[in-house]
Amino acid sequence: MSNDLQTKQFHTEIVGNNQGSAAQMNEVKSGPRIIDPVFTLEDVSVSYGKYVAVTDVNLQIPSNDITAFIGPSGCGKSTLIRTLNRTNDLIPGASVAGKVMYHDADLYDSKASAVEIRRRIGMVFQKPNPFPKSIYENVAFGPKVNGRPKKSELDEIVEKSLRGAALWDEVKDRLGASALGLSGGQQQRLCIARSLAVQPEVILMDEPCSALDPIATLRIEELMMELKKEYTIVIVTHNMQQAARVSTYTAYFVTEVNPLGDLRTGKLVEYDETKKIFSTPSDPRTEAYVTGKMG
């Protein structure tokens, strides 16, 4: 699988640049020590025009694991996850300061291609957003734009991706049917299958279950536990139980309001292993949030 190939390539790059990445690791001010992180964020701020959505973020995200961003609305967690594959580029006026490293490469380097970045770092959105095409065409879209696969190869990728997203058995007899006829939960798993089809290394999930009922949510969570064996997952969620259930690491953000009360900026309060965040957080604000006294 080309995925393995890429990972190996990154490993060699990182090994070759060992001193550098060790130095980088020391610069990170807070959070757990992570070996070979997929993402390293240093003093990251994201702004829309003059408005700073989130600031002073320092954290590292491990590979083949689930990292959760939690916090009240307006804390910039969605903005931050969207900087990890440059989806924010699509919003006029959005800008990123600080360093967002993907392995040893700067995502915001002028030579880095946003198209290539998004191919490697997939994304699943809040509301299921299948294309108004057939189930098959939804999954085949990514492989088709990224190469010219033969029909047989494409069939194989589609089946593998749908199996990977635990949707194959439900749709194998109606691959030609419109994706819009699926239930919300099925649509969201189709969106996951669609991103698996381009063989990314990372899947970013921006509140993937907020539009789903509890049973569909459970299925997605089970799927995430399965997917983390092969993929790195970052999830934004407003559901703390979900973060506690699925993630290994959790970052807690707050919304800081300026004295005039007209500007809100998100800040990272604490980043640690999920079990520590939910049992013995070091910051009182985190404790208030996870115990339900706030937010």
């Binding site: 989806t87 994304m123 957003n129 294309f131 991103s195």
Partner: peptide, 12 residues
């Protein structure tokens, strides 16, 4: 959302 979905798959 439709555009973002396509961009997220590495489309130009």
């Amino acid at each position: 959302a439709m555009r973002e979905a396509a961009y997220a798959l590495g489309a130009t």
